[in-house]
């Protein structure tokens, strides 16, 4: 294993991602969880950048940090009430869940290493132009369907959340 600069950055960003993910999962205070989620999403965006997917990294920051996380904070503030003092992590089956997660990790590692160790090295930076050609060319149908899905989700959110305001 050669410790060149990309590898070191990779390890550092991966460690941040793992630690922040654990924070999201384990922390009791709900605002800290939101902050952890933000750090996690940023580290993932950094990894995307490292792997040459600069557009995805930008999207990650825009959509998640700017969109989902803010939405989550709004939701937290909307429904925040007195039960915040109660433990959110006391679980009747955390040992079982931990073993499930661990088993899944082992299985996925076994499953993915066979595929992924065929690929080596880092690829050059992908260009925006190529991506847009893919999206507007061969994957146009999927792109349009995704747009439709967003529209449906928007309507659904209005109906669900605003239903009893009338």
């Amino acid at each position: 294993m050669s410790f060149d600069a990309p590898t070191i950055v990779q390890i550092i960003l991966g460690a941040i991602a793992l630690l922040s993910a654990m924070t999201v999962v384990l922390v009791r205070e709900i605002m800290r969880m939101a902050i952890g989620l933000g750090v996690f999403l940023l580290s993932v965006a950094g990894l995307f950048l490292l792997y040459g997917a600069s557009f995805l990294a930008t999207s990650e920051v825009f959509v998640y940090v700017g969109g989902v996380l803010v939405l989550m904070l709004f939701a937290i503030m909307l429904v925040q009430r007195s039960d915040s003092g109660r433990a959110v992590l006391v679980s009747r089956h955390d040992i079982g869940s931990a073993s499930v997660a661990l088993g899944l990790f082992v299985m996925l590692t076994v499953a993915l290493q066979g595929v992924s160790n065929r690929f080596t090295g880092s690829a050059p930076e992908s260009s925006m132009q190529e991506l847009s050609e893919v999206l507007m060319g061969g994957r146009l149908v999927q792109y349009e369907i995704a747009g439709l899905l967003l529209l449906v989700a928007l309507v659904a959110v209005i109906v669900i959340a605003g239903g009893d305001e009338r």
């Binding site: 993910a21 709900i30 959110v88 679980s91 089956h93 869940s97 899944l104």
Partner: peptide, 16 residues
């Protein structure tokens, strides 16, 4: 991914 699975299985609050 597996950390996320653990969180989905153990967290008691819906936001979590």
């Amino acid at each position: 991914f597996c950390i996320g699975v653990y969180g989905v299985l153990t967290r008691r609050d819906i936001v979590g």
